[in-house]
Amino acid sequence: MPRRTVAKLATVSAVVAVSVLAVAPSAHADLVTYCIGTGGAVTVPNDLYVPAGESCALTGTTITGNVSVAAGGNLVVSGGRVSGEVRVAADGYLDATDTTIGGQVVLAAGGYGAFLKDATAGTVTVRPKGSATVDSFLFVEGSTIAGHVNVQAGEVRLDRGTQVERNVSSTGTYYTDVHDSFVDGTLSVLNSTTGSVVCGSAVRGQATFSGNLGGVQVGPNGVLDGCASGGYWGRDVSITNTTGGVTVDDNIIDGRLTVTSNNPVAQVAANNRIRGGVTGEQAGANARSARIAAAPDREDAGEQRAQARRTSAVQEAAAAGDAGL
């Protein structure tokens, strides 16, 4: 991919902005800032646009408008602030660490992925894959989502003290896992290809798992992933129409547990505390040590995918040179 070697960040005036609105629809009518390369602790007084196939790496930068990452583009930002929203196009990538995003984050169909660490953002949306060849990912660590999480494609993991202040809704993902996190609203995981794991987390609202092909693991000692503890569920939990195995272990459920139409029958351990009892077919949980040994490390696989794109993006931005902010 060709790279320029001169200053790469240009603020485009109103006259030029008219010609770029077709490719940067979120831009204001007056100014758009293009970013190719690296930038530091300055304020961008308008919208930011990462062109197709280019990389932008920012440290301590404040963006007062919205951000658009075009197809195949990369935005890596650390210690920054975005006043508006962030939209990422097909095969685009967002990597935000210790960064505040005032608006929503939207990953388009076929977007490569979004990684948020120690960050704050509004509602996060991952669009369905559709006919795109890229399957997205959303990895969130130690972050606050001041809205909903709506995902309809790819790999999804909420981890390490992440807080979602509204609902989490997942449909048709590759997997959706929640570890050591808080969901203040409802949790819904439907039709995931390799299922769902929830460990060491608290969900205040109703939880629904249905149609998941790879199984559902609620708590430790399951076949999908290793974890240390179960969680707290503030209302009813329903796990239905699941293939690949269902395990419920070491949980407090302040409602009813429903486990129906699962193949094989759900394994519900005696150490669960379930206020409203259990409805449906269940069996006692057995062979726990064997399950732990057999569990793959889904976290490592996801981390490696994000790390590979992050490293490539930072290298490309550095090679492009100082963005000239």
Rank of each mutant, 00 (worst) to 15 (best):
P2L: 05
L9I: 04
L9A: 04
V12Y: 15
V15G: 10
A17N: 10
S19E: 13
V20W: 10
V20C: 07
A22F: 03
S26G: 12
A27Q: 13
L31C: 09
L31F: 11
C35K: 07
G40E: 14
V44P: 01
Y49H: 11
A52F: 01
C56M: 05
I63W: 03
T64Q: 14
G65Y: 00
N74I: 00
S78C: 03
R81I: 04
S83Q: 12
V86N: 10
R87C: 10
Y93S: 07
T99K: 01
T100V: 15
G103P: 06
V106C: 02
V106T: 14
A109P: 07
G111K: 01
G111Q: 00
Y112P: 02
Y112V: 08
G113F: 05
D118E: 09
D118L: 12
A119H: 00
A121P: 01
A121K: 00
G122H: 06
T123G: 06
T123M: 02
V124N: 02
T125R: 07
V126L: 11
K129T: 10
K129R: 13
K129L: 05
S131W: 13
T133V: 14
T133K: 11
T133D: 15
I145Q: 00
Q152K: 07
A153S: 11
L158T: 00
R166T: 05
T171C: 01
Y174E: 13
T176A: 15
V178C: 05
V178T: 10
H179K: 13
S181V: 09
G185R: 05
G185H: 01
L187T: 09
L187Y: 13
S188T: 15
V189Q: 00
V189P: 03
L190G: 06
N191P: 07
V197W: 07
G205S: 09
G205I: 09
A207C: 07
G211N: 12
N212Y: 00
N212D: 15
L213W: 13
G215W: 02
V216L: 07
G222F: 06
V223N: 06
L224V: 09
S229A: 14
G230S: 03
G231P: 00
Y232W: 08
W233I: 08
G234A: 11
I239A: 14
V248D: 02
D249Y: 08
N251T: 02
D254H: 15
A266I: 10
A266P: 05
A269N: 15
N271P: 15
N272E: 04
R275I: 11
R275C: 05
V278W: 03
T279P: 03
G280C: 08
G280H: 05
E281R: 11
Q282T: 13
G284T: 15
A285Y: 09
N286T: 14
R288K: 14
A294I: 04
P296A: 10
E303N: 12
A306S: 11
R309T: 09
T311W: 08
T311Q: 14
A313D: 08
A318C: 02
L325W: 09
